[in-house]
Simulated scan of single mutants.
Amino acid sequence: MLFNMRDSQPRTIGFQYPDRSVITMRLEGIGWEKAESEAYRWHGMKRGQEGAAIFQYTLSGRGELRIGEEVHSLPKNRAFLRTIPGDHEYYLPAGEPHWEFFFVTVHGDDALRHWRVLERKLGPIFELPPKSVPLEVLSSLYADIAGSSISDPYEISATLYRFVLELHRFADAGSQVRRDDIPEPLVQAVAVIRNRFHEDLSLDELAEASGLTKYHFCRSFQKYFGIKPMQYVRKIRIERAVWLLRHTDMKISVIGEACGFAHSNYFIKTFRSIIGSTPGDYRLKSGLPGFDRMEVELRPDAD
């Protein structure tokens, strides 16, 4: 449970800082609320706030989040991150009896920077287990503030930084899951990628190998691996190319073709975007350790 609901009541606590320039991640408000009227509606362009960052997590019931023309459902254990101003609004949808949620609103340049990165990593909405570390950090902060055992703005800021870093850890954990944790349909797709990375694989083929619809395959794959399926294909291809560059005298054009790149120019461009140098420059670098294997990490928003 996020916090002990039996021993407390929903409440929202606001903060005002006399010197807003000193602390780069400032808590504006933290609270636990229950909306029971369609009058509950917040629009990201009409709030009168500038430079705010919001995290909101559903405890029970259901809300909705509109971003542009897309509407996302927010059932139990779903969360979202948004910055203000922005073309979004969140609300209690028609026909829903209530939406109970936990939220935190922060200000500061660092807050906005981290929120934007996390939005790219986690997507418009994401599932967060009730016993996850980010929620435990916020739950403890809420309990301390509500119980008046913490008021120091620097200590609060330090806790907010921990919350943000734990969200980054949570977002990046998809690429660190154990094989036993990966659903069998994804294991089958990964086997196809690793065995046939040199072929002209398509997203449709990978989805078919998993036995899932393309939509559910893509969604599940990114949830468990932290990147999209075709990004994972490029990851495996580049890792193999790195090994061949370090351990063979094969021509670069031949290595590119052997790793699934039909055109040398595309191979060089992709290699440079991921590794930071061309294949030729990488091969010529002196002092590189003779790795038996290199793990290539890609950002979720990489092309």
Rank of each mutant, 00 (worst) to 15 (best):
S277A: 12
P130D: 03
I268G: 13
R66D: 02
L122S: 12
A189E: 00
R179P: 10
H107E: 14
Y90V: 04
V296E: 01
L122Q: 05
L206E: 02
E70A: 14
F291I: 12
F261W: 08
D200Y: 00
G68M: 09
L138D: 05
Y282M: 10
P134H: 12
L244K: 11
E127W: 04
S151N: 07
T58A: 08
E33W: 05
M230P: 07
E36N: 14
F80K: 05
E50L: 09
S8L: 08
P75E: 03
P129T: 04
L27S: 03
E69V: 06
I30N: 07
F170M: 09
F271N: 04
E297L: 14
A53T: 09
M230C: 02
L128M: 02
D204Q: 13
G95Y: 05
R299D: 13
L74H: 00
V22G: 14
L245K: 09
A158P: 05
Y40H: 12
L160P: 04
I125T: 14
P130W: 00
N265A: 14
K34Y: 06
A189G: 03
P10Y: 00
D181V: 13
S73Y: 01
F291Y: 12
A173G: 13
E50V: 06
K235R: 13
S60V: 04
D292I: 08
L160Y: 06
K223H: 15
G44F: 03
T12M: 15
G226R: 06
E127Y: 11
I193S: 02
R6H: 12
L212W: 01
A262N: 09
I84D: 11
T24C: 13
